[in-house]
Design a protein around this nucleic acid. Structure first.
Lengths: 411, 411
DNA sequence: CTGTTAGCGCCTTCAA
DNA sequence: TTGAAGGCGCTAACAG
């Protein structure tokens, strides 16, 4: 059986059913104002012909494609390398975006862009001709270019710098999350000598986390940062950081706690410590950020901060759809609360695993040049459990809602 | 600054540059037959206006959208559940598909479909109006409907049943992989009492793996299958399988080896064994299938079979593009070789980790109703190392190339 | 209730 | 080397 290449068009249906194309169109879209008898007859022809409307023609006519693009940085190495893990972030974002979009009957165009791609801008330009709006991951293109893209088509930046101009931004509350984590190491475990494994200089989220670390340490006079190295967010760079640490401080002068800018690096650090016979958490604590699944499997299991990535994806998507519907909206920064996940690597016993409840949602309005109007919206009807109150984490005028409520997890 | 909503069209450019739309079109597409002076002048206008061609109009005019759709089953639970892991499969497929597509300048439309969605067919139909071809994951819709979709638009099924009719299929060589794995347990470790944690009845790959297990055991008279349970491919169902096992056999009558239909279930099994104080691999061996990253982190690390998922995605994509270009091609089944990954959980020491080299590529042609024509193609210029020859694994007429060559991994 | 008729923005012969 | 013009398949007024 040779495949038929000819696809039925609206005209074919109309002709065969003996009606006009307008009528067929009405029926396809389930409008009323059609006599039931006609509807039935036409529907039959549609089914027989297997007619499906051509989306290109629809888009052209309606001036709307009902497609949005999701662009994220391609950080994956040629083959099954552990580096992949940095991508898990976008995989989860995706799981938040896609269902939201599907609900609306829209489609998702997915693209990875090599970091620092010289043609990045051109690619985004051409992409902008294929969609009604763009969800762009942090680090895909420099922000100067971002705003140029945003002139052509609505843009929401994911995990982006909250200072981005002319575009909406949805991001996790890195600062409060990191603050809560360090605060825990200080208050619950009494650590004082910290070491930091930082992320790439270009990553705004790593930057936020570092600032939080420094702020908390500054609040506790006995605590200090004895050193830090910069990693690449990968397991491998974590391993290297661990080796560097061992070389630098030797076995006797190790820090009390190693704070890593993300989970893969924390896993890498633990690997090199294990190899050297250093025990975690007995000899020192290690913590990460992100809460990726492998962190819960590692030995010891990893204490970290959970970013609700699906929610970030979903909110970003919602925001983009809103903006497409009403392009005149003012750009907004949405900060999604993070949650502390206490496991073994900080010294907490496995049984006492706790997790913070996402308390509220911080929404920062930004209209024109005026900055600083702050709106706080509750996320759900979720009851805010009582817990230790942490002080607001920031030194800036912006008040981000902190990861400030901790409740026990169910066993 | 209020966003401009008006986007420049080809006409705008033509009018302002004082040429015809045909000329602009030629320039946009880099054709020659344009006087350099004209080109330059027009290009300047294009840049100034930030003109980007509208893809809908292009598609309509060219009768080609240059978009393909990727559809996979949505198995993810509401939130960050470990079940997610079943999705890792498609995440990796994606990383094979997207770059391949990007190379060609095409785009990817991504959709998840809830398993057993009653509207599944309708969704696929409507999707078929938005793309030039479809990559469909196994289990998205019953195969009867698949072939109806395939009449409208080229379809390649991923990880599908090799018996699917009217569509191309790209899948891993589950049978040879599982056979090699079991053979290893028997020959290298001398195990004789096996227990099987099967996958869902509807999963063709689980079926292939079970058949292979049974065949190998049948070849070794001393070996037998003492029992099996069916799981859902999730960590949780692995945990349950482990508990069931402990209840059924007690501590004294445990099997020698537990063969799981995929890695997440193997991880689950190991979790419940660990909780009960059963040591792996000292007391019994546990093996999985898939080679997902967390398996390399678990304790003990998991012996398994690697499916080259990116390659599967890439090949599937290539095949789809070929078919779109030449719809008259005969449907084909491409079987991608798998690789044995020996780690700790089978009893191999970590240092002796080995991994099979992908030997060849099996391509089965299937033209019209005639089945069974078999073509074997070499994958690359890769030299085939000598190794234990295994007998052909199937009882069927199809000759699948086995995972039959084992070489040490670099440390 | 149903049909007529302009476009939507671009591509592509065919002429000039 | 350039321009003119007819679609591509569908939608949405506007008439009837």
């Amino acid at each position: 059986v040779r495949r038929e290449c000819k696809t039925a068009t609206l005209y074919d249906v109309a002709r065969i059913a003996g009606v006009s194309t307008a009528t067929v169109s009405r029926i396809v879209h389930g409008q009323d104002r059609v006599r039931p008898a006609t509807r039935e007859r036409v529907q039959k022809v549609i089914d027989e012909l297997g007619y499906v409307p051509d989306s290109a023609a629809q888009s052209l006519s309606r001036r709307r494609k009902e497609i949005i693009g999701l662009v994220s940085v391609e950080r994956f190495t040629p083959q099954y390398d552990v580096e992949n893990m940095s991508l898990l972030f976008y995989d989860e974002i995706l799981r938040g975006v896609e269902p939201r979009l599907r609900d609306e009957g829209w489609s998702l165009l997915l693209t990875y862009l090599p970091g620092e791609d010289p043609h990045g801008f051109a690619r985004l330009q051409s992409l902008s001709g294929k969609v009604d709006g763009l969800l762009i991951g942090e680090g895909v293109v420099p922000s100067s270019l971002l705003s140029r893209i945003a002139q052509r088509v609505p843009v929401v930046v994911i995990a982006g710098n909250p200072g981005e101009s002319g575009v909406d931004v949805v991001t996790a509350d890195n600062r409060s999350g990191a603050a809560a984590l360090v605060e825990h190491l200080v208050c619950a475990h009494g650590h004082t000598r910290f070491f930091h494994v930082d992320g790439p200089a270009s990553a705004p989220d790593a930057q936020e986390r570092r600032v939080a670390l420094e702020l908390v340490l500054a609040r506790h006079p006995r605590c200090r940062l004895i050193g830090s190295v910069r990693g690449e967010f990968s397991v491998r760079s974590g391993v290297e950081a661990g080796e560097h640490l061992l070389t630098t401080y030797g076995r006797r002068a190790l820090p009390d706690a190693i704070v890593c800018a993300n989970d893969p690096m924390a896993i890498g650090v633990m690997q090199s410590l294990a190899r050297a016979g250093v025990r975690v958490p007995e000899d020192l604590a290690v913590v990460g950020f992100d809460d990726i699944y492998p962190g819960s499997l590692s030995h010891p299991s990893l204490t970290t901060v959970h970013q609700p990535m699906r929610m970030i994806g979903e909110r970003a998507c919602t925001r983009l759809l809103d903006r497409i519907a009403r392009p005149e909206l003012d750009p907004e920064v949405v900060v999604i609360p993070t949650e502390l996940v206490l496991r073994e690597s900080c010294g907490c016993s496995p049984s006492m695993g706790t997790r913070a409840v996402p308390p509220r949602l911080a929404v920062q309005q930004r209209s024109g040049t005026l900055q600083g109007a702050v709106t706080i919206a509750r996320s759900d009807g979720q009851a805010t459990k009582e817990g230790r109150k942490r002080s607001q984490s920031g030194g800036r005028t912006r008040k981000a809602v902190a990861t400030d409520t901790v409740t026990p997890l169910p066993a």
